[in-house]
Design a binder for these strands. Structure first.
Lengths: 207, 207
DNA sequence: CATCGCATTGCACCAAAGGGCAATACCGGC
DNA sequence: GCCGGTATTGCCCTTTGGTGCAATGCGATG
């Protein structure tokens, strides 16, 4: 399941560690890209395939924890495996609270790191799968007109057409028209379908 | 929001630490119960109100991490705040991966511990709220007859009454009867309501 | 000004959902 | 053997939902 389609990003200021890790991951057929600093990584393009980030905690400039925070702020959620020579417990707690996959101290066994990366890739695949699933959903929702969205929200709230009509100050026939447009544009096969889509989209009444 | 209705369980083999923590939490009006060992805590009754567990990592007999594992196995999910004098990073990672709220090293500031306990109580309240929400749901679902559950699953899948009838080899009128019973017993106000209940219950077609 | 998208609505018709009333049938207990 | 819960179904009527057809009005865009 992990092949050349999966990438490992290594960010470490130590050249020997970078080359060591690069060889390690390439030995298991993973694509590796190395960076000498957090800043350099941030300037790089975002990955378009499942990836995992190997991060040294201590580095000149932005630390590993800083980078983790920056990525979260940029909504760039890539699984992170920390590696450190001189970490402490507060750092570990912070990293894990922020969702790190693993926090390893040197020296570590290669298998530990490979397992962590496997876990990171699994998380990213799952996240991408869910993302793709809701991406189409959001795209279709974007095509709804404001009025259609209002009708959408009220319909999935369980209101009858006539109740929606009263709520929006329109005729029942109009609501039926909007409702049909919603079903069509959202590509929903049934009301049940539409309700599930609304749940994933977080559609609710505004007021 | 945290009052005498919230409990703190302290498990620590050090008597002075137990009394110190007891006084600390009681000073902020929290109910405190102390235990000298993990085994003693496991023998105690489960809490019926929001609680938080303060756990020493190193203890004779079952360690704090052992207790965390046992509680998870027993499905007794109570938020845990670890406190330790001689912890290491692997221990920290294990504890946090298993869902610990916080992992503090001695000496710690009282405020850090109080904040952690507040967070633990918040998590427990939220978990209990969600639990209560789905408890009633499950209870109502239990009252459905086997046939009604089949109809339930097919209806929320978006099938028309006639399609459900064909699928189950019954008449449409029969399906309507079952469907009405389902709506009644589940106390659903609308189909949208029923679909959301099905989502929370994980109701799907068996075959 | 003309066109287009969006919102709106009336009329008519058909399909689907919801129920009231009533009857049949099976099964496990008391 | 009678009783209650469950499953089943028919007949009939009302309410809702879904659509086709057609038309009007408004604001933005070219």
């Amino acid at each position: 399941m992990t092949g050349a389609t999966h990438t490992v990003f290594v960010v470490d200021d130590d050249p020997s560690m970078r080359s060591y890790l690069k060889r390690l991951f390439e030995s298991v057929s993973l694509h590796v890209v190395t960076f000498t600093s957090a800043e350099e990584f941030l300037r790089s393009a975002r990955p378009d395939a499942p990836a995992c980030l190997i991060l040294d905690v201590q580095m000149p400039g932005l630390s590993g924890l800083d980078l983790q925070r920056e990525l979260a702020r940029a909504d760039l959620l890539i699984p992170i495996v920390f590696v450190t020579g001189h970490g402490d417990i507060p750092m570990t707690v912070q990293a894990m609270k922020a969702g790190a996959v693993e926090f390893l101290t040197k020296p570590f066994r290669n298998q530990e790191l490979l397992d962590a990366v496997r876990e990171g890739h699994a998380r990213d695949r799952e996240a991408r799968r869910r993302g793709a699933e809701t991406a189409g959903l959001h795209g279709r929702y974007e095509r709804l007109t404001p009025r259609e969205r209002e009708v959408f929200a009220l319909v999935v709230a369980g209101l009858l057409n006539k109740q929606v009509a009263a709520q929006l100050g329109a005729s029942e026939r109009t609501i039926k028209a909007h409702r049909a447009a919603v079903m069509q544009k959202m590509e929903a096969d049934s009301l049940a379908d539409l309700v599930r889509m609304a749940e994933k989209l977080g559609v609710v009444q505004n007021p």
